[in-house]
């Protein structure tokens, strides 16, 4: 069974005019968000995107942008409580105390 997370929230954007169809995004995406058709990448499953940033990081032509991060509630709650910003939180898998990831 395919697990689906909350829809219509991904920040993934593709500027197709910059794409040369190198297929790197298809290669690195762990959730089959992209497909190549007519030598251009297409976003075919936006709601599967977990915003890991692998595609944007590996697009040598700057065609992909995403506000990437780790979808971890512990990190966001920590960020909100300690720095007032959910994006600035760290979860324990970085420095090492309790469980996450």
């Amino acid at each position: 069974m395919k697990l689906s997370y909350i829809s219509n929230v991904s920040t993934l954007k593709l500027a197709q005019e910059k794409c040369i169809g190198c297929e790197r995004c298809v290669e690195v995406c762990p959730h089959a968000v992209f497909e190549i058709n007519n030598k251009k990448a297409h976003i075919v499953a936006l709601d599967n995107c977990m915003e890991c940033g692998a595609c944007a990081q590996n697009c040598a032509f700057g065609a992909i942008s995403v506000k990437n991060g780790v979808g971890c509630a512990a990190a966001m709650i920590n960020g909100l409580l300690t720095k007032g910003d959910p994006d600035k939180g760290t979860c324990d898998c970085e420095s090492g105390s309790t469980s996450c990831c």
Partner: peptide, 16 residues
């Protein structure tokens, strides 16, 4: 969510 393999930060923020 932190241990799962498919949750996005935007989704977690929406839930939060």
């Amino acid at each position: 969510t932190g241990s799962s393999t498919y949750t996005s930060p935007s989704g977690v923020k929406t839930e939060l």
